[in-house]
Amino acid sequence: MSDPVSALNGASFNGFASVREVGPLGMISLRHKGGAALTKAIKAAVGTKVPAQRKIEVAGDKACGWMSPDEYLLVLPYGEVGAAMDALAKALDGEHHLAADVSDARAVFRVEGDKADQVLAKLSPVDFATLEPGELRRSRAAQVAAAMWAQDGGFTVVCFRSVAVYVMGLLTHSAQPGSELA
């Protein structure tokens, strides 16, 4: 078997902020109504606590984001998804839940630089000035769904894999040198 290939194979652009496609990145969509078993399962899978509403808990190269009252996004190295799925199945045995490997269904971008937020402010109806630390915001980037959060001096943007070329086009357009908003 070949190595997994991310949607754009690491494409990048340097404008007033830098944009690069990262990955492949492991992602699990976990649906569960909450409770002690969930806490245990998330801990076992990615080592974080259960994130509060709209928050993402980061622990090293793993994270768990709140997607909706009964949906969480687990982020982890691509190669560790199988083990994490096993851990979830074990911890949630007998509990009503759904865990789906969605690593391949997504494209992930990093937008970095002092003005990274300005790139995103051109695409999403999101008030980045009031975005709280550790807040995961689901919204849209122009015409497609996107989730984004601030991390390590930049933003991580997640979209569907099939529109990766479109989103890269958006980010490139928005990061053009000279088009800073302030």
Binding site: R54, P125, R138, S139, R140
Partner: peptide
């Protein structure tokens, strides 16, 4: 009411 986001109509 689920996630507390003041959503823009274009997000709905």
């Amino acid at each position: 009411p689920y996630c507390g986001v003041k959503a823009d109509e274009t997000e709905l």
